[in-house]
Design a protein around this nucleic acid. Structure first.
Length: 340
DNA sequence: AAATCGTTACCCGTTACATCA
DNA sequence: AGTGATGTAACGGGTAACGAT
């Protein structure tokens, strides 16, 4: 079970997602685009996106003659930002891009996208000769890993490209990570076309983009869990304090009741304890209070039972009805954060 | 209409590697 | 230079949804 609290920056991002709502009009792959948001219970943002997105198509950006794209989906601001940042994500290294064409060819579904994206890259009108000195050829910081080294490119493919050596761990460049981060802020899930387009732009394998988004979602969730945990901890502390305060108040009332028996001459019910914690509300039973003071609050965790309510003096309601009624005794204890 | 199967995407836990102190 | 801690890319297993049969 996942907490649905809206706390922290991550939820702000989620909110943004809801607003931005990116839809990938799927003429071709209706089901697969739909799958992006089908796990509504797990990714509300994605569900909202899927359900309400009026966006016609982002395939535009993938078509050969499509104008340059900052992100593979239609986000003017994003595009602008990318441009102003100097990102010319379409300036993929030619060698890498060509290698990508081959890599994509292994993935049946992504093949067409790869071709389209490749064309889009080459035809970018914003390709002003590399305004950004950025190399998305994905050699990491140290240039040791070449993710596009002819790897499988399959959705679940392993990196057994380099002669069966152990998996090489790519370290994404700062630019790549930042770009992925920006796209994640746009939406935390990708449909296949977005994935392929993003991979193309970053000169990564689609699988790498997919994994990055998965790991990123995991990090977000972990962070959110920590925030939620902190929040629940504070709630628990607050409730504990409140409980202690009420216990103290209850003890004072009981003491008052014993010290000033005059109260007992009042309509006995006036001072009747909450029926849920004391069964002595009737006139005939003056008090059994001292007997079970400590345990009393905890015994009525379930609330006021019918029998107890029968004992409820008429004046009790009058006495406590307005400002504050007795909370069901022991409630703070019984409502411990058991459920999450 | 219901059952079964294959596909796909996702989450989760873990592993392996890179980096840093 | 060696080492442990940390961050994270990558993997494998399990699951749910969907379409096809």
């Amino acid at each position: 079970m996942e907490l649905g609290l809206s706390l922290g920056e991550t939820m702000a991002d989620a909110g943004r997602e809801l607003v931005l709502g990116l839809g990938v009009g799927g003429a071709g792959g209706g089901r697969r685009e739909e799958q992006v948001g089908r796990r509504g219970h797990q990714d509300v943002a994605a569900a909202m996106r899927c359900g309400s997105s009026p966006e016609p198509t982002m395939r535009l950006a993938l078509l050969p003659m499509a104008p340059s794209l900052g992100f593979p989906w239609p986000s003017e601001s994003r595009h602008l930002e990318a441009s102003t940042r100097g990102f010319d994500v379409n300036q993929a290294p030619s060698s890498g891009a060509s290698a990508w064409g081959g890599a994509y060819a292994t993935a049946d579904d992504e093949q067409e996208d790869a071709g389209a994206a490749g064309a889009a890259v080459s035809s970018s009108p914003n390709d002003s000769g590399g305004s950004f000195p950025m190399d998305f050829s994905a050699h990491g910081e140290r240039g040791d890993a070449a993710p596009c080294g002819g790897g499988g490119g399959g959705s679940r493919g392993s990196d057994e490209d380099d002669g069966g050596s152990a998996r090489k761990k790519l370290r994404l460049s700062k630019e790549q990570a930042a770009f992925l981060e920006e796209s994640f802020k746009e939406h935390s899930t990708l449909n296949p076309r977005q994935k392929v387009a993003l991979a193309k732009q970053l000169n990564l394998r689609p699988r790498q983009v997919e994994v990055w988004f998965q790991n990123r979602r995991a990090r977000t969730k972990l962070k959110q869990t920590e925030v939620d945990c902190e929040y629940l901890k504070r709630c628990c502390e607050t409730l504990t304090e409140e409980n202690q305060r009420l216990q103290k108040e209850l003890a004072e009332l009981r003491a008052l009741k014993t010290v000033h028996p005059f109260y007992m001459h009042l309509p006995a019910t006036t001072l009747s304890m909450c029926p849920s914690c004391e069964r002595v509300a009737s006139n005939s039973a003056p008090s059994a209070p001292a007997a079970a003071p400590a345990s009393a609050p905890t015994t009525a965790g379930g609330g006021i039972g019918p029998a107890a309510q029968e004992h409820r003096p008429s004046s009790f309601a009058a006495l406590f009805s307005s400002a504050r009624s007795f909370p069901p005794a022991g409630q703070p204890q019984t409502q411990a954060p058991s459920s999450s």
